[in-house]
């Protein structure tokens, strides 16, 4: 009945991509999301409690992606609850505030959370938000951010939700990487099936042949 409609709507996109925004409280996760999903900015956002959701369509070459973005509460206290949010996340945007050293220092704690609770293949990206601030107020340099991202081997952007700098790019990058990964996984699964039909030849065997 009502569910039939669901089928129709589902076919409107090729991939539904679940993204998770994490990072300390007040670094601007909700503002980034608002900028990205509605292209607006408000300096006085309300506190995210638990989790909030936004959806955004994103055309990618010949494919239609739907990004379902989960905006989580940054406060450490919510972590016992937020672990549930990591399940099923395909991409994680880890945000810190370039004016707040502590939020930058906490990146490693967030990375540990990801390791513990998210799937291994999840795509990660590091974001230093509020890069529009006066250089005098900046506490974390571009170079520090870049270096940390390199350490974790993840991509890095400095963004400004306020001035709309790099916001689209950050979301686009992670979404594209995920779409590529999914397509590859689908290919792999498909080829894996083919291989299975031939007796006794696994992917490893194939490699040896080459």
């Amino acid at each position: 009945m009502a569910n039939r409609g669901k089928q129709g709507a589902q076919s409107k996109y090729d991939h539904l991509i679940k993204l998770l925004l994490i990072g300390d409280s007040g670094v601007g996760k909700s503002c980034l999301l608002l900028r990205y999903s509605e292209d607006s900015f408000t300096p006085s956002f309300i506190t995210t409690i638990g989790i909030d959701f936004k959806i955004k369509s994103l055309p990618l070459e010949d494919k239609k992606l739907k990004l379902q973005i989960w905006d989580t509460a940054g406060q450490e206290r919510f972590r016992t609850i937020t672990t549930a949010y990591y399940r099923g996340a395909m991409g994680i945007l880890l945000v810190y505030d370039v004016t707040d050293e502590r939020s930058f220092a906490n990146v490693k704690n967030w990375m540990r959370q990801i390791e513990q609770h998210a799937s291994e293949s999840v795509n990660k990206i590091l974001i230093g938000n509020k890069c529009d601030v006066d250089p005098a107020d900046r506490r974390v340099s571009l170079e520090q951010g870049r270096k940390l991202a390199e350490e974790y081997r993840i991509k890095f952007f400095e963004t400004s939700a306020k001035e709309n700098v790099n916001v689209d790019e950050a979301f686009y990058t992670v979404a594209r990487d995920i779409a590529l990964r999914i397509d590859n996984e689908v290919d792999l699964t498909a080829s894996g099936k083919n291989v299975k039909i031939g007796p006794g030849v696994g992917p490893a065997g194939g490699k040896e042949c080459c």
Binding site: A2, G5, K6, Y13, K54, I55
Partner: peptide, 17 residues
């Protein structure tokens, strides 16, 4: 209930929240 049952699965979280 009706709108939650009818909402497509991608929109459901936002509708609910």
């Amino acid at each position: 209930r009706a709108s939650l049952l009818a909402a497509p699965v991608d929109l459901l979280p936002e509708t609910l929240a």
